[in-house]
Amino acid sequence: MAANTHTLDLPAVGRPGAIGMPTHHKLIFLGFLALALVAPYVLYPVFLMKVLCFALFACAFNLLLGFGGLLSFGHAAYFGSASYVSAHAAKVWGLTPELSILTGTLAAAVLGLAIGSLAIRRQGIYFAMVTLAFAQMVFFFSVQAPFTGGEDGIQSVPRGHLFGLISMAPDRNLYFFVLAVVFAGLLIIYRIIHSPFGQVLKAIRDNEPRSVSLGYRVDRYKLAVFVLSAALAGLAGATKAIVFQLASLTDVYWTMSGEVVLMTLLGGMGTVFGPIVGAAIIVAMQNYLATFGAWVTVIQGVIFVISVLLFREGIIGVLSKWLKKPL
């Protein structure tokens, strides 16, 4: 009876077809890739790279919140710390862009492991507050640490040569590299979500006491998804530092954590493609409404309120319900 109970509660684990990608998901990924390959010839590549970096950041956060059920108010810590480490590695250590990004990602993963191992001991709002507290500690460290440059940040970060061969100075060269990094990150997140590990995460999110009663070591799963989310957020932050040739306090400030929550909720929490749409909308508003100055924040707030009222599951969440297909 116990063995059958696992199958009933976690329907996708260990069954044929649990791993295969649905046709409509394949078409969406192919459409996204085709659109992304054409986009730099129509739009400004640096703007597109910013969208890609924040799309990956939002998807990494959604992995933790939407599928792990853990609300973190401190994800800027991993995004920003990876940005600083990547920029320092490229400028001071002279590493190539791919090694700089990898170094930043590893730093974010280590930080995520340290913070996550303490934060997962609490639940709900207490977990969220613990993550926020640690993120503020990272922010104040970034203000005081000598290698971060304080309020000036790390500027004039060299883009370098990919594998020591291909110059990343031209925007389009760097764009296609960033696209490859982000697309690989999105595929990794998709694979995590649709793996047996991902199905257990959903079970923990929906009914943690039931998962414990089935014998799952819930804390280990929580810590694993926390570290994975931190590492992928770090990948986004490290890539952004190379793109803008800058790592600043903005990347580790609490408002960055708020932005990624907004992107995730706007696009659709717990959906695969929702955070991408949410990130694209928020970054586009920041870019094209910049002439309004401080009013951009107010406009964002109004749009967010309207979206919450009209699209309670997020834009993609509502679309998924209309189409009756998971997106």
Rank of each mutant, 00 (worst) to 15 (best):
T5S: 10
T5A: 13
T7W: 11
T7D: 10
L8I: 14
L10F: 15
L10M: 05
L10I: 15
L10V: 14
L10W: 03
L10T: 13
L10G: 00
P11H: 10
P11K: 13
A12D: 11
A12F: 13
V13R: 00
V13Y: 01
V13K: 00
V13A: 01
G14K: 03
G14M: 07
G14R: 02
P16D: 13
G17S: 02
G17K: 02
A18T: 10
A18F: 09
I19G: 01
G20K: 12
G20Y: 08
G20H: 12
M21A: 13
M21T: 15
M21G: 06
M21V: 15
P22N: 06
P22L: 02
P22I: 00
P22Y: 02
T23E: 11
T23V: 15
T23S: 13
T23M: 14
H24Y: 10
H24R: 09
H25E: 06
H25A: 10
H25R: 12
H25F: 10
K26E: 04
K26I: 13
K26S: 11
K26W: 13
K26F: 12
K26D: 02
L27Q: 07
L27C: 06
I28E: 01
I28W: 09
I28V: 14
F29A: 14
F29G: 07
F29Q: 04
L30G: 11
G31Q: 05
G31V: 03
F32G: 12
F32A: 15
F32S: 13
F32N: 07
L33F: 14
L33V: 14
A34W: 05
A34V: 15
L35E: 04
L35K: 05
L35M: 14
A36T: 11
A36L: 11
A36K: 04
A36Y: 04
L37M: 13
L37N: 12
L37S: 06
L37K: 05
L37C: 14
V38D: 04
V38Y: 07
V38W: 10
V38C: 05
A39N: 08
A39T: 05
A39I: 02
A39E: 05
A39C: 06
P40I: 01
P40M: 01
Y41Q: 11
Y41P: 01
Y41I: 01
Y41E: 06
V42C: 03
V42S: 02
L43M: 12
L43C: 03
P45R: 04
P45A: 07
V46A: 08
V46Y: 09
V46R: 07
F47W: 12
F47R: 04
F47I: 09
F47G: 05
L48N: 03
L48Q: 04
L48S: 06
K50T: 13
K50I: 08
V51P: 08
L52W: 11
L52S: 11
L52R: 12
C53F: 05
A55W: 05
A55L: 07
A55P: 03
A55T: 08
L56H: 11
F57Q: 03
A58N: 06
A58Y: 01
A58G: 09
A58Q: 02
C59M: 15
C59G: 02
A60L: 09
A60K: 03
A60S: 15
F61N: 08
N62L: 00
